[in-house]
Nucleic acid binder design. Structure first.
Lengths: 337, 337
DNA sequence: CATGGCGATTACATCGTTGTAAATGGGTCG
DNA sequence: CGACCCATTTACAACGATGTAATCGCCATG
């Protein structure tokens, strides 16, 4: 089995110097047509591909970017990953996907470039990072944060307006006459994570409507999976009086809740409304289909890739950006749609 | 911001040669305790991390492996990815995930190491590869195939017994008195892909039961998503006589079918049974919950990682392995469970 | 015909790491 | 006391690519 050809082999085959081959590969302008053709022919004949390790060693670039998400089996992240790959692809970059498991150490590892050494930059969707972690991050790795807004500035960010999104979702429930609205996956206090921001938006809507904000109706969860939603919904149905609507902070929680309500003989949207966040594909096909707050995933992906590539091109551009992407409430059967 | 420290900086700080630092990093045995401690201290003080590009250039290894799957938003692959990461992690390897989009060119690119240059090996779940593609693959990249069994040998493989799995699923439906069983996502002819093998298993079960194999009941789909299942199920309900069971070749198809049947006012399992493949988390929470053939994902992941690492250690071990992993039918509400 | 200019090409060094082979130095044994 | 052994450490080169700066060769100009 022949060894993988090197640039030197191509050079010998084409009768030029290695550097000339490099010039052809990198589209250097001062290369004669004849030479370019000869080198290209050699490349094709030998099946040459650049060795990215060698290139990175020399010029520090790989053309790859890393996307680090908490869990791929949360459909939102899987769908987002697909969009990010598409956008990156359109710009000639390759995406490596990494899972942090929502573990702070692993998010840190990504941030410090340990898991992203081959990457020119990182798109990170953090869940467990602390504000200080960001302040001490290694500035040499261009980073764009998704979702969770960084408490400390210093890092580009892309996300939806979580407060407004939750407010609108709550207003939708209120407009349907719901009054006792529980929040599954919410957080009343603590750092300004997604859960806290969405709970704040819910609270705003409630208070604007002249309704009391009852912290008891905000139920935290361990994780954002079906089972957690099912468990929380079942527990809420034990309450007296019972909630007449569930604002679930992602679709998995909402879908789990739907199942639990079905088991308890509660009709959705007859007895109560359920609404989720993310608009994953499953939500269009559940019974009942799920009303949800849909972030514009494609725009998130595009903005993230764009910001990152710009940051890679000009790492020292001081101007920091916080790009707010659109969202909308998609009304389906679970709220009578 | 100081530049990233190199091995040379650590060496100077510790007062030893670069090679000694390398020896410490790589746990070379003939290093005195004193020296080791001094070097370790320097590493900690400077925050040194090895540069993988440099290492790969020199020794050709990175400690990373690539997992390439068709689509991450197919939950089975997302769940599998999670298991593979866990197994690799336990063995001190890092996993890079890659999406091929089920496009042959991209599966080929992975196979030829273009997308996996930084990896010591590749776990590939192919969908679109042709037999010949495997025969001509670059032997220098260790590869383990998942799912689709390679028609041409020459590549290690891990998967379930698809024929047996489909047979058992069909037998389960037959045992419940179902007779007109349709296959959504199946293939009557063509290469021995997963769809074809499962259809063969279905056929075996039907014929063993003395029932006719009707090719018309095998419905191909464009992709294995909810919408395709919904569309196929709706079309099948137009048939006369109507099928009394749907064998869907993955859970997404089955869940989409459930929704379509609900829309048509058909009761599952009252009017007909539905069964899927993969046992994704959604299937435990759908209404009705979904009977499904559950492959042992963890064992698949473990076997794949083990085989790959062995192949990386000893690329020339001739013995090829085809590891068959267990599966079982999990009976839930959609077949009366 | 000498000179200058410029496009095309090349020699060389270097990115960070580690394999090879050689050097160092302390201790043992005859 | 000298020779040798072996654990430890080191010098050097090389992995593959490309930036820098120098060189080459051709043509226009005076």
């Amino acid at each position: 089995m022949a060894a993988r050809p090197r640039i030197k082999d191509v050079a010998e085959y084409a009768g030029v110097s290695p550097k000339t081959v490099s010039n052809v590969i990198n589209n250097f302008e001062h290369v004669s047509e004849r030479t370019r053709a000869a080198v290209q022919e050699a490349i094709d004949a030998l099946g040459y591909r650049v060795n990215i390790a060698g290139r990175q060693l020399r010029q520090g670039r790989t053309g790859m970017i890393t996307l680090a998400v908490p869990e791929l089996d949360v459909a939102y992240f899987a769908e987002l990953a697909k969009h990010v790959m598409a956008e990156a692809d359109a710009r000639g970059r390759t995406v490596l996907i990494h899972q942090t498991g929502a573990v702070r150490e692993r998010e840190l590892a990504a941030l410090h470039g340990f898991d992203a050494q081959f990457s020119d930059g990182l798109i990170l969707s953090p869940l467990a990072l602390r504000p200080r972690d960001l302040a001490t991050r290694d500035r040499r790795l261009p980073v764009v944060l998704l979702g969770e807004r960084p408490a400390e500035g210093g890092t580009d960010h892309v996300g939806i307006d979580n407060v407004a999104a939750a407010r609108e979702a709550t207003e939708h429930l209120l407009s349907r006459g719901r009054r006792r609205i529980a929040v599954i996956g919410g957080a009343v206090r603590g750092r300004q994570g997604t859960d806290r921001l969405r709970t704040d938006g819910y609270r705003e809507a409630m208070e604007t409507a002249g309704l009391p904000f009852e912290p008891d109706l905000v139920v935290p969860v361990d994780a954002y999976h079906w089972r957690d939603g099912a468990r929380a919904a079942a527990a809420l149905m034990e309450r007296d009086p019972r909630p007449d609507a569930l604002l679930c902070l992602n679709d998995h929680l909402a879908l789990g809740a739907l199942r639990a309500l079905h088991d308890l003989g509660r009709s959705v949207p007859g007895d109560l409304d359920v609404i989720g966040f993310d608009d994953i594909e499953a939500s269009r096909f559940s019974v009942p289909s799920l009303t949800t707050v849909a972030p514009d995933k494609q725009q998130i992906a595009r903005a993230a890739v764009d910001l990152l590539l710009e940051r890679i091109e000009a790492p020292d551009a001081v101007e920091l950006r916080d790009q707010v992407v659109g969202h909308r409430v998609i009304v389906r059967e679970s709220t009578g749609g």
